Deep mutational scan, measured.
Amino acid sequence: KEFRPGDKVVLPPYGVGVVAGIAQRSVSGVSRAYYQVDFPGSRSKAYVPVEAPHSVGLRKAL
């Protein structure tokens, strides 16, 4: 896996977040693995496909 729990990442347009782990989510009846990204200071979460994280701009924070 490219990202691990605890990694600081950037996800446009949300900003800097932390990978909380990998979650299985069902979309249109198909279960897939997603990185769960939490954003400190907020209750917001984002789910990014493990198979294509760069397709939505997910990258490691510098």
Rank of each mutant, 00 (worst) to 15 (best):
K1G: 13
K1C: 15
K1F: 15
K1R: 12
E2P: 10
E2Y: 13
E2T: 11
F3N: 00
F3R: 00
F3L: 05
R4V: 09
R4E: 08
R4D: 04
R4I: 13
P5V: 15
P5T: 12
P5E: 09
G6H: 02
G6Y: 03
G6R: 02
G6D: 01
D7W: 09
D7K: 01
D7Y: 03
D7G: 02
D7E: 08
D7H: 03
K8A: 09
K8G: 03
K8L: 15
K8C: 14
K8T: 08
K8V: 14
V9E: 01
V9Q: 00
V9F: 04
V10D: 04
V10K: 04
V10I: 13
V10Q: 05
V10C: 12
L11D: 01
L11Y: 07
L11I: 04
L11W: 06
L11G: 00
P12R: 07
P12N: 05
P12V: 07
P12A: 08
P12C: 15
P12H: 10
P12F: 11
P12D: 06
P13V: 05
P13H: 09
P13K: 09
P13C: 14
P13S: 06
P13D: 05
Y14P: 01
Y14M: 11
Y14Q: 03
Y14T: 01
Y14D: 00
Y14N: 02
Y14G: 00
Y14V: 02
Y14A: 02
G15M: 03
G15N: 00
G15H: 02
G15K: 03
V16A: 09
V16D: 06
V16P: 07
V16W: 12
G17I: 02
G17K: 00
G17T: 01
V18W: 12
V18H: 05
V18L: 06
V18N: 03
V18F: 11
V19W: 02
V19H: 00
V19Y: 05
V19R: 00
A20M: 13
A20D: 03
A20G: 06
A20F: 10
G21E: 05
G21K: 10
G21I: 04
I22W: 03
A23L: 15
A23N: 05
A23E: 12
A23V: 15
A23K: 13
A23S: 11
A23D: 05
Q24A: 07
Q24N: 11
R25L: 14
R25N: 05
R25P: 01
R25Q: 06
S26W: 15
S26I: 14
S26R: 13
S26A: 08
V27E: 09
V27C: 11
V27K: 09
V27N: 06
S28D: 14
S28M: 14
S28A: 13
S28Y: 09
S28N: 14
S28E: 13
G29I: 01
G29F: 03
G29P: 00
G29R: 04
G29E: 02
G29M: 03
V30W: 04
V30Y: 08
V30S: 06
S31V: 14
S31Q: 11
R32Q: 08
R32C: 07
R32A: 15
R32T: 06
R32F: 06
R32H: 07
R32V: 08
A33H: 09
A33D: 10
A33T: 10
A33K: 10
Y34N: 01
Y34K: 01
Y35N: 02
Y35G: 00
Y35W: 05
Y35C: 04
Q36D: 03
Q36M: 13
Q36S: 05
Q36N: 03
V37P: 00
V37F: 02
V37W: 01
D38L: 13
D38R: 13
D38K: 13
F39R: 00
F39N: 01
F39I: 03
F39E: 00
F39D: 01
F39P: 01
P40I: 09
P40E: 09
P40G: 10
P40F: 13
P40L: 11
G41D: 12
G41R: 10
G41E: 11
G41Y: 13
G41V: 07
G41N: 11
G41F: 14
S42R: 12
S42C: 13
S42K: 11
S42M: 10
S42P: 06
S42I: 11
S42L: 12
S42D: 08
R43T: 11
R43M: 14
R43Q: 12
R43S: 12
R43A: 11
R43V: 11
R43C: 14
R43G: 12
R43I: 10
R43F: 13
S44V: 14
S44A: 13
S44P: 08
S44E: 12
S44F: 15
S44H: 14
S44K: 14
S44N: 13
S44M: 15
K45F: 12
K45Q: 10
K45H: 12
K45G: 04
K45A: 12
A46M: 11
A46I: 13
A46G: 04
A46Y: 10
A46L: 09
A46C: 11
A46R: 11
Y47S: 02
Y47P: 00
Y47A: 00
Y47R: 01
Y47N: 02
V48N: 02
V48L: 04
V48E: 00
V48W: 03
V48G: 00
V48K: 00
P49A: 07
P49V: 04
P49C: 10
P49N: 04
P49R: 05
V50T: 04
V50A: 03
V50I: 09
V50Q: 02
V50S: 01
V50N: 02
V50W: 05
V50F: 06
E51C: 07
E51K: 06
A52N: 14
A52L: 06
A52D: 15
A52M: 07
A52I: 06
A52E: 09
A52F: 10
P53H: 07
P53G: 08
P53L: 06
H54E: 14
H54C: 11
H54V: 05
S55N: 08
S55L: 13
S55Q: 09
S55C: 14
S55V: 10
S55R: 10
V56D: 05
V56I: 07
V56H: 14
V56K: 08
G57M: 06
G57P: 04
G57F: 04
G57T: 04
G57H: 05
G57L: 05
L58V: 03
L58P: 03
L58C: 06
L58M: 14
R59V: 09
R59A: 05
R59Q: 07
R59I: 09
R59D: 03
K60N: 08
K60F: 11
K60H: 15
K60A: 10
A61R: 07
A61I: 15
A61N: 05
A61V: 14
L62P: 12
L62T: 12
L62C: 14
L62V: 14
